[in-house]
């Protein structure tokens, strides 16, 4: 059974507790769950071990099999995306409830992009180039964040999502366009406008 051609059949098989379907499902999506757990924990700045990841991985599959969590999935063609969200949230829940640890750094997302963003996602580096070595960089980032929120005020929710997904979550224009179901040109124009606006505000505040 090819999960890409027959996602509906595979999911329904798992819901019916068909063991062959379950084997194919695990074979196909185990890597998605594993990646999503590591990705989320890294982005939130948790210090985690391989054992943590393996435990969460198994807990996710237990929830899918024993608690019939798959019944929640309505868009069967988006199983990988759904699983990535379920696994990422399970990772955070695990650290909060089992290990009693809150996310270590409330601006870890910004830090991550600042350090390792690539291509179009390197936007905070673009807007804050001169501040990289400043001792009060944390305060500078917080202030930049406030200014970003102010710069976003004039946008509608979809535009705001596009800008934040790019500036704060490191997504590329094409990925944002696919997620929001809008043309790439529209995304690029919105982001360019928001960046210009933000840059002006930061310059006015002498943050640049």
């Amino acid at each position: 059974m090819d999960p890409n051609e027959h996602p509906e059949e595979l999911i329904q098989g798992c819901i019916r507790k068909d063991r062959r379907s379950w084997d194919v499902f695990v074979e196909t999506y185990s890597r998605v769950v594993y990646w999503a757990i590591r990705d989320r924990l890294k982005r939130y700045g948790y210090d985690f071990s391989e054992e943590d990841v393996n435990d969460i991985h198994q807990d996710v599959f237990i929830a899918l099999w024993a608690s019939d969590r798959l019944k929640q999935l309505r868009e069967h063609g988006k199983a990988a995306g759904w699983l990535a969200m379920v696994a990422g949230n399970a990772a955070i829940d695990h650290f909060r409830k089992v290990k009693r640890q809150s996310p270590p750094n409330s601006i870890s997302i910004y830090e991550e992009i600042y350090r390792t963003g690539d291509g179009e996602s390197r936007t905070l580096e673009e807007v804050l180039p001169s501040g990289a070595d400043r001792p009060d960089r944390q305060a500078q980032l917080n202030e930049a964040r406030e200014e970003l929120e102010a710069a976003l005020d004039g946008l509608n929710p979809k535009e705001r999502m596009a800008v934040k997904l790019n500036l704060l979550h490191g997504m590329k224009h094409a990925e944002i366009a696919a997620a929001l179901k809008v043309p790439v040109n529209t995304v690029s124009t919105t982001i360019a406008r928001a960046k210009k606006n933000l840059k002006e505000k930061l310059e006015k505040k002498r943050l640049l």
Binding site: W35, A36, K78, G81, A84, H169
Partner: peptide
């Protein structure tokens, strides 16, 4: 937004 990013990236 982080969930949307994770979903989109995982699918791709």
């Amino acid at each position: 937004l982080e969930n949307i990013r994770a979903a989109q990236t995982a699918e791709r």
